[in-house]
């Protein structure tokens, strides 16, 4: 993990006073209340908070999956527009999502799932499949390439989903509880995958309720009741620091 240093460059994501509500009048719920957030290039931000705090909505909004009622969001300096069509374009090229439920398309093989966003960008089938295949290879899934999601374990599916997200080389990777549905071993694999991507410079915004997963990020922000209430920047630590950080006793 990089020791984060504030730079003067444009932040990768800049959200200014975004608000969003659902329902009207008596049923109105303010899900996001004047939230401001900046994510720097290459930074890994974890968003935590109790359920109902708005963290998933925040993630969706930052990635252009949902509109906001007021405020502005920019990715790479270009603000997200109100039109769904324009946001869709950003989702095709700049942003990629990974979901708790993987959300792979059951009709397609793992390979074709990963190739799909490339095909949507206009790549010919062979080229798309080639890139998808090398990506899956890099992720260690080459022998599961031709399987359908139904034949893959949860962990494998999530890794295929990550491959799909990485296929378009997104500016930022949005992960919504990526390990939420996985057992600890698969979860570790997925976390390692995210870690290695982060080491390669990938900007990641992640929602999680798992503190262990969150600890891998550069920065942990906490949401409560629609607002960002807390933030911890992780300083760089080494393995050798551990003994000073905890006091563990094997008995006298």
């Amino acid at each position: 993990m990089t020791d984060h240093v504030k730079t003067n460059e444009t932040p990768t994501i800049e959200a200014v006073e975004i608000c969003r509500h659902f329902g009207t009048d008596t049923t109105r719920v303010d899900v996001l209340r004047t939230v401001c957030l900046q994510v720097e290039a290459g930074e890994w931000v974890a968003i935590m908070g109790p359920s109902g705090s708005g963290k998933t909505t925040l993630l969706h909004a930052l990635g252009g999956l949902e509109p906001v009622d007021s405020g502005s969001i920019s990715i790479s300096g270009e603000s997200l527009s109100h039109s769904e069509a324009s946001r869709a374009r950003r989702r095709r090229n700049d942003v990629a999502f990974v979901f708790q439920q993987y959300n792979l398309l059951g009709d397609l093989t793992a390979l074709d799932n990963v190739a799909l966003p490339l095909r949507m960008q206009g790549l010919r089938r062979r080229a798309a499949r080639g890139q998808a295949s090398s990506l899956l290879d890099r992720l260690g899934l080459v022998d599961r390439m031709h399987a359908h999601p139904a034949q893959l374990s949860g962990g494998e599916q999530q890794r295929v989903a990550i491959a799909r997200a990485l296929a378009v080389e997104p500016v930022v990777l949005m992960a919504d509880e990526p390990t939420g549905a996985l057992d600890s071993d698969s979860g570790s694999l997925v976390l390692d995958l995210l870690r290695s991507q982060h080491e390669r410079g990938q900007t990641i915004v992640m929602v999680t309720h798992d503190h262990r997963v969150a600890s891998a990020a550069d920065r942990v922000v906490t949401m409560h009741d629609g607002q960002l209430v807390d933030e911890h920047r992780m300083r760089a630590v080494h393995a050798s620091d551990l003994q000073h950080l905890i006091s563990l006793d094997v008995g006298r």
Partner: peptide, 16 residues
């Protein structure tokens, strides 16, 4: 509907 959600997440516009 889930498949449609994935399409949209991947960047398909309503018109698409």
């Amino acid at each position: 509907r889930r498949e449609l959600g994935v399409w949209k997440a991947l960047g398909a516009t309503p018109r698409d």
